[in-house]
C-alpha cells in the first residue's frame, strides 16, 4: 500500500490500563514533531477530534473481552491500512486473560454484587485471534522508543527494526551480573522477548516476563532448571507463566504441562514468598 506523505494515524483502545497509548504522550521530546509527521485523526485519550476512517495506520491497545468490542475491532480492521497491536493485552490477552483458566461467572461474583448487569465474554483474547494484524509490539507496557520506531517505520513504508532476541542478550550488552546464575533468582530472561533493556536484572531482580514469550523459547527447559536447582514450586511456575502474557503460546504450553503435573501428583514445594 502506498503511504501518503502525511499518513493518518488512529489509536484505539479495548480492555487495558491505557498505559501503552500513554507511551505516545510520554514521548515528551518527540510528540509535537510526530504530530507534524503524521495526522493524528483519532486518539480519544488525547483529543476531542475523532475523525472517521479510513486510516493509514491504526494502533490497537487492549484485549477483546466483549461481543461489542469484537464487532468494533472488525470495523477498525476494515478502515485501516496497517493495523498494529501494541502491548501485552493486545498481543497476549493481558493479565485479564487469567479468566481464561477460571470460571468468569465466579470472577464477576467476586467483584460485583450484581453480575447480571455486566456483559462480558468468557475469555480475554489478543487482537490477532479476531482480525489480521500487520505487526505486534510486545511489552507491559510497550517501550516508547520501540513504539516510535514502529510508527515511523510504517509511516515511511518500511518494516520496523525490532530485535526478536531474549532479555539475556540485552542483559549481557548492559553488563549486568546474571541474577539467575549468581543469585539463584527465578529469572524468566532466557525465555522473554527483549525490548525493556533488561530492566529487572539491572535492578537486582529476576525478569518476570512482562514482554512475553520469545519466539522458539525453551520454556520447559528453563522451568525444569528453576525447579530442580532453584527451588521453584509447581505453583510458582504456573503463576509466573500465567501472568502478564497468559495467551503467549510457548508459555501457555508449559503452564498446561504444570497443570498436568499437578494432577499426576508431582512433588510440590512449600511455596514461600521470596518475591
Amino acid at each position: 500500500m502506498a503511504m501518503p506523505a502525511r499518513p493518518r494515524l488512529a489509536v484505539f483502545k479495548f480492555a487495558s490500563c491505557d498505559g501503552c497509548q500513554l507511551s505516545l504522550l510520554d514521548c515528551e521530546d518527540e510528540l509535537l514533531s510526530i504530530a507534524e509527521r503524521l495526522d493524528i485523526v483519532h486518539f480519544p485519550e488525547a483529543s476531542r477530534r475523532m475523525l472517521i476512517g479510513p486510516y493509514d495506520i491504526a494502533l490497537v491497545e487492549g484485549s477483546i473481552t466483549t461481543a461489542h468490542d469484537r464487532e468494533r475491532l472488525t470495523e477498525i480492521r476494515e478502515q485501516s491500512g496497517f493495523l498494529v497491536s501494541i502491548g501485552a493485552c493486545a498481543t497476549a490477552g493481558g493479565l485479564q486473560a487469567m479468566r481464561n483458566f477460571a470460571d468468569v461467572s465466579d470472577y464477576a461474583r467476586t467483584v460485583y454484587p450484581h453480575p447480571e448487569y455486566l456483559s462480558t465474554l468468557e475469555t480475554s483474547t489478543p487482537i490477532a485471534d479476531h482480525v489480521a494484524v500487520d505487526y505486534e509490539l510486545h511489552g507491559c507496557p510497550v517501550d516508547k522508543y520501540q513504539l516510535l520506531e514502529v510508527v515511523l517505520a510504517f509511516a515511511s513504508g518500511r518494516r520496523p527494526q525490532i530485535a526478536r532476541e531474549s532479555v539475556c542478550m540485552e542483559c549481557k550488552a548492559r553488563g549486568n551480573v546474571c541474577v539467575l546464575v549468581a543469585q539463584g533468582q527465578h529469572c524468566l530472561g532466557p525465555i522473554t522477548q527483549a525490548g525493556c533493556g533488561a530492566l529487572c536484572p539491572a535492578y537486582n531482580r529476576g525478569c518476570y516476563g512482562c514482554f512475553g514469550g520469545k519466539e522458539q523459547a525453551q520454556v520447559g527447559s528453563l522451568i525444569d532448571h528453576l525447579r530442580v536447582h532453584h527451588g521453584m514450586t509447581l505453583d510458582q511456575a504456573r503463576r509466573s507463566l500465567r501472568a502478564y502474557n497468559p495467551t503467549a503460546e510457548p508459555l501457555q504450553i508449559i503452564a498446561l504441562q504444570c497443570d498436568k503435573d499437578d494432577v499426576s501428583g508431582s512433588k510440590r514445594g512449600s511455596g514461600g514468598h521470596d518475591g
Binding site: 493479565l95 485479564q96 479468566r99 467483584v111 455486566l118 462480558t120 503463576r239
Partner: peptide
Amino acid sequence: PPRFFEAFLQGRELT
C-alpha cells in the same frame, strides 16, 4: 469492560 483484578489476585503470592 471489567477486567476482574480482585478476582485473579486470589491465589497469587502477596509479593
